[in-house]
Computed example of a mutant assay.
Amino acid sequence: MKKLALAVVVTMASSLCAMAASDVTKSPPPAPYEQVSKLVKLPDFLPGMGALFVDPATLPAGPFLAYDHGGKLVSTIYMLPIKDLNPDKRFDNLAAPGGNVDHVDVYYNAGHPGVPEPHVHVVLWHVPAADEARVAK
């Protein structure tokens, strides 16, 4: 009986972990994520990126979760400060909270509200390249 109870607890815990991992696929994601436009002066939806959410404790790097107009997760974005891209700093074990990554884009950004210093955007796309249009406008 104890083995059966343990098996049930383990199965339930595994299911809860799987559900928690998928919670970020729809907007709004669960705490500790907050809408970026509520934290800094930015629009609710940024063309080319989407509606962004971040755990403020992870700033400036993120991960930022980006959603399309329908509230579906399209990408996970890291904003890595240029000053930290040196031999003394590492960014290890960066998570992809949205699950599978279809492709990755990396590009420079001179800074913006919330991350004012120059940085690199590392975009982990969870959708095919053709579906990036979901956040184009």
Rank of each mutant, 00 (worst) to 15 (best):
M1L: 13
K3M: 10
K3D: 15
L6E: 09
V8E: 02
V8K: 02
V10E: 07
V10R: 09
M12T: 11
S15F: 00
A18R: 07
A18D: 14
A18V: 01
A21L: 13
S22F: 07
V24T: 08
K26P: 01
S27T: 11
P28A: 14
P29S: 09
P30Y: 05
P32H: 09
P32S: 14
E34G: 06
E34D: 09
Q35Y: 01
V36G: 05
K38R: 12
K38Q: 14
K41W: 08
G48F: 08
G50M: 04
A51H: 08
A51V: 04
L52T: 12
V54N: 04
P56V: 06
P56C: 03
T58S: 14
L59A: 15
P63Q: 11
P63H: 10
F64W: 12
L65K: 13
L65W: 12
Y67N: 03
Y67G: 09
H69Y: 03
G70H: 10
K72N: 15
K72P: 02
K72L: 07
V74Y: 06
I77Y: 02
Y78C: 05
Y78K: 04
L80D: 01
L85D: 13
P87D: 06
D88Q: 13
D88F: 08
D88Y: 07
K89H: 15
K89Q: 15
K89G: 11
F91D: 10
L94G: 02
A96N: 14
A96R: 14
N100V: 01
V101P: 02
H103L: 00
V104G: 03
V106P: 11
Y107W: 06
A110H: 10
A110Y: 04
P113F: 02
G114I: 02
P116G: 06
E117W: 02
E117C: 01
E117Q: 12
H119P: 04
V123K: 04
L124H: 02
L124N: 10
D131G: 10
E132I: 10
E132Q: 15
E132V: 12
A133E: 07
K137F: 00
